[in-house]
Design a protein around this nucleic acid. Structure first.
Lengths: 338, 338
DNA sequence: CTGTTAGCGCCTTCAG
DNA sequence: CTGAAGGCGCTAACAG
């Protein structure tokens, strides 16, 4: 293995100068820098990560915590974060935070404490107080995304999201509105489901529209779950609009409406949240959360905390979102004007 | 930061003994081991990854190369691989292999050469010869999955997969069969598309059934792409069965049939490949590839190469797959028996 | 079984 | 601007 000494020898300088030239720290004459670069390139020299980490205390590696590595949403966020981090010279080490207690304990008590990462990015994670404390005690920058845990968290204002969905339906003239929420058992991850439900209900109430229990069903974030929930809602009584707490569930609702012989948007309007790629195909109106950008934004927040020269991240809780009106929502068809 | 010396002092032994006790290498008396464990636990000591890597030459980290980190299939494989690797004490560092030439060069010339990983796992990657060579020159175990590149690769026999699909349709009595393949521009990643197409065509030919050009359309692996391709096929002439080279495209085909007023499976049978989670919801017959298991299997292959005590991985090119018959395929409805 | 002794390969003061 | 020298924290012979 060619080492820094080889490069120093070939370039006719000391190892200190090689280090400085290659890392861009400290002053090095242009000539020396060039000779070093040339020598390094000739020898195919690449500094050992462990050696330089040990000596410098910096790893150039960021730990990313995710609840699932599959799953569309996390994949998208992870993609954005990884892309940005790598462009800035950081590697990304993945830490799936399972629900298994022993594994989690091991993660927070050992894995993350090996000084293998310079910072931690926690994506949509519901962390217990002890875990949050463990993270903080690492003494590293920690950025959370999509969670109001006791950490600097970037998140979309779920209340505003739900309100936007409600407003959209109300403005279209709907009054008989139902909601597909998230089963409590699945609504971990800082409880987006509960937040969206609450915001939606409040927005409807503000407009004088009730959201009685029979107009609320829950699913497990999947298409199949959304289908079941919608079927239940439709059976419970007439409804002209449905707001599902995720696009996948909304897609299930779309099918459920059709299975029930109801036209979308003729008889029932359906709106989701997320900006899932399939939403476009199914012509589903949704509120896009721009998950890939969320990942990028979070990555910049990490870089900022690390380098202080990266752009300032947005204020906590203010990630953008936008209504994408499509063909699954339409004005209420007045059956018989009073 | 509490270091190994602190532990040694508290336990009343040398640092060497601490290292041995904690790593399980070498002989250590039960008493000493216990005192060390206790001291380490009292002090909350965790060995520094870089220090131990530098000293031992092992990083306990494996690099995973993926074309996309989002994308259902890669997410699934990645999930399986990560789970297994972490259970065996390895961290996983993610390296997205973009299509950008400069980024790729940097990855193979620098990132992977920092001695940050003990092994490399390449998932469904189309690597150029130079890149394969670069990987091999790392002097590390490299395991590839889903690619017949010049590397020990685990892969499903795509020919057999396509043949299975063909047989299924033929046995149901279909003769007017069409295929949705993969656009060449998207069919990177060791060209599954081309392989499936070729195998399918061959299997049909063996049964005396032609697959003329007008019975073949291509998509980009997406639902929307499958929809467009199927629409084209249906417009080109009557067809009673369609084999799509991915479940997502098959789902698009399902919709296209319905949009064209054709019942599935009444008028047209549709079969996909992958084992996508949505396939179940849409009652799509498919050939499952068990992607999560692929990830696990690949991880075991890596562990085997690393430790030699992990279970023997399966022979290259023999990953399992299975037909999952569902409601989207049915016997040909004889319109007018001859 | 256990301690001593060298490094692993690089970065970073500290002089010059 | 550059070199010398120490040390980052741990592991791995090598003697005992």
């Amino acid at each position: 293995m060619t080492s820094i000494d080889d490069v120093a020898r070939l370039a006719g300088v000391s190892t200190a100068t090689v280090s400085r030239a290659l890392n861009g720290r400290g002053k090095v004459s242009a000539g020396a820098r060039e000779r070093v670069r040339q020598a390094a390139s000739d020898l195919g020299y690449v500094a050992s990560a462990s050696a330089s980490s040990l000596a410098s205390g910096r790893t150039r590696n960021v730990g990313v915590l995710v609840p699932f590595v599959d799953g569309w949403f996390f994949g998208a966020v992870l993609a954005g974060a990884t892309e940005t981090l790598m462009q800035h010279g950081y590697d990304v080490t993945l830490y799936p935070v399972t629900t298994d207690a022993a594994t989690r304990r091991d993660l927070f008590r050992t894995l993350l404490r090996r000084r293998r990462v310079d910072a931690v990015l926690a994506i949509s994670l519901a962390l217990e107080p002890g875990e949050v404390a463990a993270l903080q005690q690492l003494g590293l920058p920690v950025v959370a995304i999509g969670g109001p845990q006791a950490l600097p968290a970037l998140a979309v204002d779920e209340d505003a999201v739900a309100r936007l969905a409600a407003t959209h339906l109300i403005e279209l003239g709907h009054r008989d509105i139902a909601h597909i929420g998230v089963e409590a058992s699945v609504d971990i991850d800082f409880r987006v489901g509960a937040r969206r439900h609450a915001g939606f209900e409040r927005a409807l109430a503000d407009a004088g529209i009730p959201l009685p229990p029979e107009r609320v069903a829950t699913g497990d974030f999947t298409v199949a779950g959304g289908h079941r929930a919608a079927a239940r809602l439709l059976a419970a009584g007439p409804v002209t609009a449905i707001f599902a707490a995720s696009d996948e569930m909304a897609i299930g609702a779309l099918q459920a409406c059709r299975d029930a012989g109801l036209a979308v948007p003729g008889d029932v309007s359906v709106i989701g949240v997320d900006g899932h790629e399939l939403a476009a195909f199914f012509d589903l109106t949704t509120i896009d959360q721009f998950p890939v950008d969320q990942g990028r934004t979070a990555a910049f927040a990490v870089l900022h905390a690390l380098d202080a020269d990266a752009p300032e991240p947005p204020a906590p809780g203010r990630l953008p979102f936008a209504l994408l009106p499509r063909g699954s929502t339409a004005p209420l068809r007045r059956v018989a004007p009073a």
